[in-house]
Amino acid sequence: MENNSVITINNLVKRFPVGGDFFTALKNIDLTLNKGEFTGLVGPSGSGKTTLLNIIGGLDSPTEGQISVLGHALNDTSHSKRALLRREHMGFIFQSYNLLPVYTVFENVELPLILNKVDSQKREEKVNQAIEWVGLSNKRDSRPAMLSGGECQRTAIARAIVHQPALVLADEPTANLDAENSHHIMKILSNLNQEMSTSFIFATHDEKIMAYLRRIIHLDDGQITEDEKIENPKASA
């Protein structure tokens, strides 16, 4: 089981300076996530879910404690090495999609492959495959401004998984979507999880997402209050 671990967190603390004082966003977090897990960090606003997700993604650093992601101790890793780790092994999905507005769907999805220096023929192949997975083949030349919220998020998903990362981090991926689109997105992600063995971590307080999760980590006031394993999720692919 230990060899299977994707994320190992020990006694992690994160404090932010606020005025002349500090606000403790995460307190003594201990956590292990294994390969292929479909996990949710669940809790109310301000509970520390996004902060934890950002630290796992190497976008932020812990104040105290140890964190190892995909075998890399992030505490001792430089900014550029963390960027390399994200580029090669991680995918991000954001609440507000964060698509580059001047790029088409194809170009947005292609970007991680360009950064990973994949040759153009292979790139086209992989991008088309990713776009097909999310059902946007007919929109590949559209710009984000011409897409609906659901289509934008599906583009973001395609971008996150196009390079077949080991870990996908999704921050409130359905917060801006209606119920139908939310279920659609979660079905896609759940399918991808099963087909690619990619580990998914969601930061969410959306009940619709929780119905798909196989592990729910409850956070409140920066602390893990419950770690729940679900054998048979209510919704399934």
Partner: peptide
């Protein structure tokens, strides 16, 4: 700013 953040998130180094 958001675009810069996105580029960093998908693995582009600051430099």
């Amino acid at each position: 700013g958001r675009e810069i953040g996105t580029l960093m998130a998908i693995g582009m180094t600051r430099s």
